[in-house]
Design a protein around this nucleic acid. Structure first.
Lengths: 223, 223
DNA sequence: CTATTATTAGAGTATATACTCTACTCAGTC
DNA sequence: GACTGAGTAGAGTATATACTCTAATAATAG
């Protein structure tokens, strides 16, 4: 593997583990047992590394959110979207953690990220629309779809951060895949009131699969 | 005003304006035209300043979320809760911005913040319960109240961050009070499906007051 | 008036961070 | 077999950051 790619990979790994703020270019170089100079031979600065990682993230999510035009959506599609998005969020979780600072540092990133957000919101609106066409959820006015998409976006992108703040430990230890996927439970709860009777049971039992094991888990580890 | 209090005030101001990460103790001292040594006479370290500011924040929100036990809740109460919480969020907006890092730095803060979150969620659950008793929203099972409260928490605490990322500018310029209060529109949209017919019109017209002026505002400032 | 304590200034320190510079290696190539 | 240029090492730099130390001054109590 090329050094350049190794740098990207190691950066992502360290950013996710310890946060971008706590990861210096020297750390990255040391982790790869290369010199800082070498790192700066491949990247002009830290921002460029972050920007490239973001572009990977963007590409991945865009790929996940591809919507078939030739057929109606199914509940399985919806499951896939939810699972994929949370997987992507996990793989690049450092990004949303320090989002505001990162955007302040790099105007390119700010602009690209805004476009990215808008694409995601548009995709979600389309998904709603197609779910309605498929008779899975009720047909909603354009405006409501818009606001709903935004609410789901907020829940999805901040679920991980919530879990981290809700846990006693500092690192990733407390973050199980079960807990992460419980975010899907939260999202499906938002959709619940809009389900069509014909699909209600199916979606509800799907939702059930993501229910937290212990309902009061969050309180169980109070000091 | 005592120097100690001035330090807290200036810190909050600078944190909110430029972010905690971009605000050093030297900046704070310079802003007040006092020496760094003086600042460190009053506070052992930066974490202590942040911790005290958090305690103010906590106190304010706890005060806002006080729930009357002797009478049923009204739509006016709900409005007050929403308005107050967003006001508080605005006054201490630096806090949620760098939350994860701040909690990583200070175990006291982590623990206190978790308790704070749980208190807020509990308050929200109680509010739902009392709104149901008052016949404003449908009576819901305990479990649903819990999940709903969490979703609203996510929307409320991250609405500001979303607005900042959605705008082209770096600082606070793009953040109008109108935009901020649009968060209330988002929250009321979540509650919408659970409204009782008797109060539906009243709450819906309340919601209407917070509707964004331009539906596609987010796209209007694309570079 | 004096002794003590609270408050302040301001220079100084240890450490870290992003990044630079110079020099070296070594694989390919004409 | 000299030449080129991508790749690498590693010491070095400018700056910043959180924080300390010493000494001076203002306030207050006895």
């Amino acid at each position: 593997m090329k050094t350049r790619d190794k740098i990207l990979l190691a950066s992502l790994e360290l950013f996710n583990e310890r946060g971008e703020r706590n990861t210096t270019t020297n750390h990255i170089a040391a982790h790869l047992a290369i010199s800082p100079g070498n790192l700066y031979y491949h990247f002009r600065n830290k921002s460029d590394i972050i920007y490239e990682i973001f572009q990977e993230y963007e590409k991945l999510v865009d790929y996940y959110l591809d919507i078939p035009e030739d057929r109606p959506l199914t509940v399985a599609d919806m499951t896939f979207y939810l699972e994929s998005v949370f997987d992507g969020l996990w793989s690049y979780r450092f990004f949303h953690r320090d989002l505001e600072y990162l955007l302040d540092c790099d105007p390119r990133l700010r602009s690209d990220y805004r476009d990215f957000t808008n694409r995601c919101l548009a995709a979600m609106k389309t998904i709603f629309e197609k779910l309605a066409e498929a008779g899975i959820v009720q047909k909603q006015p354009e405006e409501l779809r818009e606001v709903m998409a935004l609410n789901i976006w907020l829940v999805v992108t901040n679920w991980m951060a919530f879990l981290k703040t809700a846990h006693a430990s500092t690192g990733d230890e407390g973050l199980s895949l079960t807990a992460l996927k419980q975010g899907i439970y939260q999202v499906l709860t938002l959709e619940m009131p809009y389900l069509m009777p014909e699909y209600r049971d199916e979606v509800m039992s799907l939702r059930e699969r993501y229910r937290p094991v212990l309902p009061e888990q969050r309180d169980s580890d109070v000091a």
